[in-house]
Structure formats: C-alpha cells, structure tokens
C-alpha cells in the first residue's frame, strides 16, 4: 500500500501544476478561516468581527467550517481528474501496466492518494477549528467542545466520495476537461431527474429519491448552516427549525457511491484495450 501511495505521490509532487493546486486546496480554506477569525477594522469606521456572530462557538463551529471548507474541494478535484487525464495523454498508463503494475494496483494507487488527501484535509480543518473555537467560544467543557464532531467524519466521507466520482469520470472520459464538465452535467441531470419525479409524484418523494443521487447525497451530508445560525440568534423563530444533523444512513449512501465509483473505474480499466 505504501508503495502505491509513494508511486502516486511521486507522479503528483513532481508536477508543478498539481503541486500548486494541492497547495491551494490546503492553504486557501485555511487562510479564509484565519482571515475570517481576525478582527478587521475598516479604516476606523467600523470593525467587522465574524466571531461576534457566534459562528466560532462550539459546537456550531464544526458545522460551519466543514461546510465552507468543502467548497474548496474543487481544487483537488482538478488534480484528481488531471492525474487520470495525464496518464492517458502521456500514455504512461500503458507503460505502467507493461512495467508490471496490475490494473487493480493502478486504481488503488489513485484511490489511496484520494483517501490520504482527504485525511490530511480533515485533520487540518479539525485542528484549525479546534484552536479558533477555543479562542472564541465561551464554552470550554470537553463535552461541548467535542459535541457534533461527526461533522468532521461527514466532511471526510464527503471528500472521499466526491473525489471517487472525479476518479470515475476521469477514467470514463480520459480527458480532464471533459471529466470536470461532466460533473456539471451530472448536477443538471440530478435536477432534471428530480423535476420528472416531482411531476410524477410528490415533492416529498422527489426529495427522498434525490437524496440518493451521488452529488445530492454528498451535498446532503453537511447541510447549510445559515438557518441554524439565525436560529441561535433568534431562538423564538420556531418555524425556522430544521434537521441539520448527520445521519448514519446518509454516510452509508455516500460510502456506497464511493465503492461503486471505484469498482466501476476498475471495471472500465479492465475491459479497455489501451
């Protein structure tokens, strides 16, 4: 396993474009987080301190940071599709197999790298949230601090699932740009399918079905935190209440898609003549 990860890391880290993208995908969410946590003084007119809004209080900080950090996954998604696209355009995939890498090992080396990246991203966001939370939060009992850390697990699963989808599209289309475009096509397709089901049945059933679709199921893992923020400010607004928790079956759906995408990537490679 270590051999396969090293193999892929060599391919990635010697490529300047990938290094820049990996760097951005790690550093950018981190920077945004740090910047938003400091007090910004607008030339003495007024000061903006997001911390005052209570977004950095435990336990809501886990929800907020994972929700926003997830947007930066797109940078690493580019890396994932290009690590497949480059293998095809350089024909190195053929040479790798001729040199004695099995097709299974080829896919696994990509998948392990995805997992490794997701672990690093999760750890980074966890550490950053923890310290910013400690600084701003008025609570400091461990029971409150570590409540809702399941958002971190959801964040990790979400990343792995999304990158596996990118891996599959990369294998399917062989070209990075097409693969990224296909992500968008899938997004539209999910909405069209939703609309068709909505017409045929009810909104309740349509949403239930859509929650099983790949992109929606990943989106659904960490639900938007805005409503929750308003709720904490104005607890009397009962009608704003919604369910923002992470459920086990939502994790299972995304894990299921991950398994399907990795398996399909393997099947595709196995059946293809290079």
């Amino acid at each position: 396993m270590l051999r396969l990860v090293k193999l892929e890391l060599q391919k990635l880290l010697l490529n300047r474009a990938s290094v820049v993208l990996i760097f951005i995908s790690f550093v950018l969410p981190f920077t945004v987080l740090i910047l938003s946590s400091i007090k910004i003084n607008f030339f003495g007119f007024f000061t903006l301190e997001l911390g005052e809004l209570g977004i950095f209080n435990f336990p809501i900080i886990w929800h907020i940071t994972t929700y926003f950090a997830a947007f930066f996954k797109l940078f690493f998604a580019i890396v994932v599709v290009s690590m497949i696209g480059n293998e095809y355009s350089n024909k190195t995939i053929k040479q790798n197999l001729i040199d004695g890498l099995s097709k299974k090992e080829f896919i696994l080396s990509k998948f392990y790298t995805i997992v490794l990246f997701s672990v690093l991203a999760t750890v980074l966001i966890a550490v950053a949230s923890f310290f910013i939370g400690l600084y701003y939060s008025s609570y400091n009992e461990a029971s409150i601090i570590f409540r809702e850390t399941e958002f971190l697990l959801a964040y990790f699963i979400k990343l792995v699932g999304f990158f596996s989808l990118c891996l599959f599209f990369g294998m399917l289309l062989k070209r990075s740009a097409f693969a990224l475009a296909f992500l968008f096509v899938l997004y539209i397709f999910e909405w069209i399918a939703f609309w068709i089901i909505l017409r045929a049945t009810s909104s309740e059933i349509a949403w239930k079905v859509k929650n099983f679709f790949p992109l929606e199921s990943m989106q659904n893992l960490i639900k938007q935190p805005f409503q929750r923020l308003i709720m904490t400010k104005y607890p009397e607004n009962i009608d704003m209440a919604y369910d923002y928790a992470v459920y086990w079956y939502e994790l299972v759906i995304v894990l299921g898609w991950t398994a399907i995408f990795v398996f399909l990537s393997y099947r595709l490679l196995k059946q293809r003549d290079l």
């Binding site: 040479q95 197999l97 001729i98 004695g100």
Partner: peptide, 17 residues
C-alpha cells in the same frame, strides 16, 4: 503482472512523464 516484473518491454513510442 508479476511475470511482467521480470520482463522488460517498450512499445512503439517511449512513454514517460
């Protein structure tokens, strides 16, 4: 694939990174 580790092969164009 294990046998190929004992084989050296190049095909038409040299494919490297």
């Amino acid at each position: 694939h294990d046998a190929l580790k004992k084989v050296g092969a190049i095909i038409e164009n040299p494919n490297f990174y």
